[in-house]
């Protein structure tokens, strides 16, 4: 009697395990289908968002648009119109470092679409800030003689203090600076090589200067090779 009971219990246990498995498998299939649908529908939009983050800023960084225009409701449209006038080539740039290793940058080589005349360079670079990395876009003129603009893509600086490096007002200091001079952040800027540091966030401000200095220096180093490639 007990043997039969044990056997029937075993059979039931085996049955329920199989019974439970089909529920999980069905759910997995249904959810997998839903996720595949989401990927197909929204994947391209997400890719575009990621690309646009840097691309949409290129007209701003090359002095073809102002911050106010970009922030306006039709700012994105305007940026796209400007981008349509340009042909942009994306590349990875590697410049060897003095102590070994290399500095890597994302480089956008921008030229006029119709005229094919070089319009400038935009470098995407990152470096250490006060708290974590700061990722920047730096715009330069075709001869790498002047810095035309700066944009902060990502930063983790102290909210309310170092955070201000992202504001348009602070960044506008980098528009139209000579690129041959090393920039530094000071309290009372007097010369071309000095910019106003944020009160209470000297390290954040100086970090941005260091990152920009390094990127500009490296671009100027390899400019002859890049120009040869352009022709």
């Amino acid at each position: 009697m007990t043997d039969e009971k044990g056997q029937s219990e075993q059979r039931k246990a085996g049955g329920t395990y199989l019974g439970q498995a089909w529920l999980v498998l069905t759910l997995a299939l249904v959810f997998g289908g839903a996720l595949a649908g989401v990927q197909v529908a929204w994947g391209p939009i997400i890719e575009r968002n990621k690309e646009n983050e840097a691309r949409l800023r290129i007209p701003l960084l090359l002095g073809r648009m102002s911050e106010a225009q970009l922030d306006a409701p039709d700012g994105e449209q305007h940026a796209h119109t400007e981008l349509d006038k340009l042909s942009i080539e994306e590349r990875m740039l590697e410049v060897p470092r003095a102590g070994g290793g290399a500095n890597r940058y994302g480089l956008y080589a921008v030229a006029g679409k119709a005229t094919r005349a070089p319009a400038g360079w935009v470098l995407q670079t990152r470096g250490p800030g006060y708290a974590g990395d700061i990722e920047l876009l730096v715009g330069l003129d075709p001869g790498a003689e002047r810095i035309l603009g700066l944009y902060v893509l990502a930063q983790n600086e102290t909210p309310g203090v170092g955070n201000a490096i992202g504001t348009a007002k602070w960044r506008s200091q980098f528009a139209d600076r000579p690129a041959g001079i090393s920039l530094s952040a000071v309290k009372d800027p007097t010369t071309d090589g000095e910019i106003q540091a944020i009160g209470g966030a000297t390290i954040s401000s100086q970090s941005v200067c260091d990152i920009v200095n390094r990127a500009v220096r490296d671009l100027r180093k390899v400019l002859p090779q890049l120009r040869d490639r352009q022709e």
Binding site: V24, L27, F31, L35, V38, W42, I46
Partner: peptide
């Protein structure tokens, strides 16, 4: 499984 799926959907929606 259910929660993870819907969180993925919410996350993708926000990213898009």
């Amino acid at each position: 499984l259910t929660i993870a799926t819907f969180v993925t959907i919410a996350d993708r929606f926000l990213a898009a």
